[in-house]
């Protein structure tokens, strides 16, 4: 009998274990219908962006002067044609690629750089903290839209310049959260204990600090994507950011402004796409927040 217990496979014992944190979060998240729909919409948009070449009925770059500005519902062009006679549906589908890329990339870059700055400042402390965080304060002293536009305006139009400006704008808030969480974790008893038992700075950060920082940062980053989508398209709308003839929702909104009086439905279409994407990310974040029980 004693021997039987000793040879019991470890897996059988592990069944008693309580589910992990993220499993609990997912279970709660799954019960939130609004958040699940938002997640579905986002996944669908990503799928559309990936499959763009296979599902577009026409070449998004090829126009025809004789077929300019056809209203939605035109046979062969379900959503009409734009000011150069290019198929709107195809351009909106291809637009998902650039618009999502321009909206999501700066947030991920800022998450990476911002947490690195914040964790370094919080963990090292002292004058390193002072220098890093006061610099962050200066960037934070600018209204975000103004800074993004001023930066990309100064550097000139283009995808890379647009990405850089948006990343710079999103770094300060992320660095601040990372810094404050790291500073509070650093003083905790178990981190002191880890240091006393000889753990190096890197392994303490990896094991104890990151675990505490990543959750709040991740949720905050998700909420930034909605803002970033609107801002990135806004840059292209102004003529900064993505340049013609690339299909991007903000840029399409800009070039279709000439048809505001003749084809109003047509000009509203790209904006609806930005709206749907941004509201889905906001609802997803709200769902995540309540599933993770984080206060807004």
């Amino acid at each position: 009998m004693v021997q039987a217990v000793a040879t019991l496979p470890i897996d059988d014992v592990a069944i008693e274990r309580s589910p992990g944190y993220w499993v609990t979060v997912w279970r709660r998240f799954r019960r939130d219908p609004v958040a699940m729909v938002a997640l579905g919409v986002i996944l669908l948009l990503i799928l559309i962006a990936i499959l763009a070449p296979y599902i577009t009925p026409h070449d998004p770059y090829r126009g025809a002067t004789l077929r300019r500005l056809r209203p939605p519902g035109t046979p062969g062009h379900w959503l009409g044609t734009d000011e150069l006679g290019r198929d709107m549906l195809s351009r909106l589908i291809y637009g998902a690629r650039l618009s999502l890329f321009m909206g999501v990339t700066p947030v991920f870059l800022a998450l990476f750089i911002g947490s690195a700055i914040g964790i370094t400042a919080g963990y090292v402390g002292g004058w390193v903290n002072t220098i890093l965080m006061r610099t962050i304060d200066i960037i934070f002293a600018f209204p975000s839209v103004l800074l993004a536009i001023a930066l990309s305006g100064a550097m000139g139009a283009g995808i890379v310049n647009g990405l850089i400006s948006l990343t710079v704008v999103f770094i300060p808030p992320i660095a601040r959260i990372a810094e404050s969480v790291t500073t509070s974790v650093r003083g905790l008893d178990y981190v002191e204990a880890a240091r006393a038992s000889g753990a190096g700075a890197l392994s303490i950060v990896r094991k104890h600090v990151l675990g505490n920082v990543l959750g709040p940062i991740f949720v905050y980053g998700m909420s930034l994507i909605a803002v970033s989508m609107i801002l990135a398209s806004g840059l292209s709308f102004l003529g900064l950011g993505v340049r013609p003839p690339e299909p991007e929702w903000g840029l399409m909104l800009n070039t279709l402004r000439t048809a505001l009086y003749t084809q109003p439905m047509l000009c509203a279409l790209p904006g609806i796409m930005i709206f749907i994407t941004s509201i889905s990310f906001n609802l997803l974040t709200d769902g995540l927040r309540s599933a993770m029980d984080i206060k807004a």
Partner: peptide, 23 residues
Amino acid sequence: SVAGVSVPHYWLGMVLVIIFSAQ
């Protein structure tokens, strides 16, 4: 309120122009 924070306001402006000026 979620719609308010999610709407691309430059697009909303165009829609309002379409409704209240053009139409």
